[in-house]
């Protein structure tokens, strides 16, 4: 039965007189029975031009009798969003696993010669964003799926504190995501400007399905796609999240519902994308994690995956075997190895 079921029934039954006199024009013959409130109920249900209404009670939308966005929100959340989000978030890891089993990791034969790839601030910014992202994803997904996964398993009394903790933690860490996102954006955007070869890279699927490794600069097409998705969806997430953090500043419930819809969708898309990113950074491609951990990568790794960048580094004479002491220079914040400073 439809949500409003009984309610509509009641309203309609009660107002049968109004319903009879839908058309305001009196009949030409017979007795015209004037209708006490012809347009009233249309207004109540917000059909056609809603009438301005008033109330003594102060509060968000308190002068509105029926909020039509509410039912759309329920429908979206219960009939669509939660289900498709579950499919997506369960499906992507399965696909990745299958890919890994068929394709295996991309191997690296270390040359022992290192290149500086990410300086200290690059790495701190990246891991700050990653930490906050993972925490927000974990707590957010608990709020989204907990009722269907954890409640049947642990019960309501156990889930309630978990959900409360998730909500408070999520609300508090949210703004930090925006801070970290802006930091990462500013530090990495110059290296992520799109180029023609990135499109070629994407069309060739990064060379994952055989063939020569397509050409790539500092970042390849896939990495740039991830960067820009993160920027766009991350901003949407942050803005909608901030509105949800301060619901008292929202002008209407419609906008809050819209924010929840956008927030949920963007979050699920980013989490699904992040699975791929995490796979490529760890198990998928040998030698990649080192770049974000220590700041240096093996020269062979660079030649394999980022040939243009590698060529540039060679041209500029940056390729050198980093000794223990030189490795410590990865702490410099300028992105370059500065000579004469240890």
């Amino acid at each position: 039965m439809n949500a409003y079921g009984l309610l509509w029934g009641l309203l309609l039954a009660l107002l049968s007189t109004a319903a009879q006199a839908q058309n305001d024009t009196p009949p030409q013959s017979g007795i015209w029975i004037p209708n006490p409130g012809a347009d009233l109920w249309k207004a109540v249900r917000q059909r056609g031009q809603p009438e301005p209404s008033t109330t003594q009670v102060q509060g968000l939308d308190s002068n509105q009798l029926i909020n039509v966005a509410g039912e759309k929100f329920r429908d979206w959340r219960r009939e669509r969003f939660i289900r498709y989000a579950a499919y997506l978030l369960a499906g992507v890891p399965v696909v990745i696993l299958l890919f890994h089993m068929l394709h295996g990791a991309m191997k690296l034969e270390p040359s022992g010669r290192k290149l500086l790839r990410f300086d200290l601030y690059d790495r701190v910014a990246h891991w700050l964003l990653a930490t906050v992202f993972l925490f927000l994803a974990f707590t957010g997904l608990l709020l989204l799926f907990g009722r269907f996964v954890i409640v049947p398993w642990l019960g309501l009394d156990a889930f309630s504190p978990i959900a409360s903790a998730s909500k408070e933690g999520h609300n508090l860490f949210g703004p930090l995501f925006l801070v970290a996102l802006l930091w990462v954006f500013l530090r990495f955007v110059a290296r992520n400007l799109p180029a023609w070869r990135d499109i070629v890279w994407l069309l060739k699927g990064g060379g994952a399905f055989g063939g020569k490794h397509p050409s790539a600069g500092f970042f390849n097409g896939g990495e740039k796609l991830w960067f820009w998705s993160l920027a766009v969806f991350g901003l949407l997430l942050s803005l909608s999240g901030l509105l949800l953090d301060f619901p008292s500043y929202a002008p209407s419930r419609e906008l809050l519902v819209l924010a929840l819809v956008v927030h949920g969708a963007a979050a699920v898309i980013l989490v699904a994308f992040s699975f791929g990113h995490i796979y490529m950074g760890t198990a998928g491609v040998e030698g990649t994690l080192e770049g974000m951990r220590d700041g240096t990568v093996d020269a062979n790794w660079a030649r394999q995956h980022h040939d243009q960048w590698y060529a540039e580094m060679v041209r500029e004479g940056r390729l050198e075997a980093l000794s223990e002491a030189q490795e410590n220079r990865a702490e410099t914040t300028t992105g370059q190895l500065e000579e004469g400073r240890t």
Partner: peptide, 16 residues
């Protein structure tokens, strides 16, 4: 939170 996270990340990411 922001400060502590950055300090600790710096601690583990800075080779020194």
């Amino acid at each position: 939170f922001l400060g502590l996270l950055m300090l600790w990340l710096n601690r583990v990411l800075n080779p020194v």
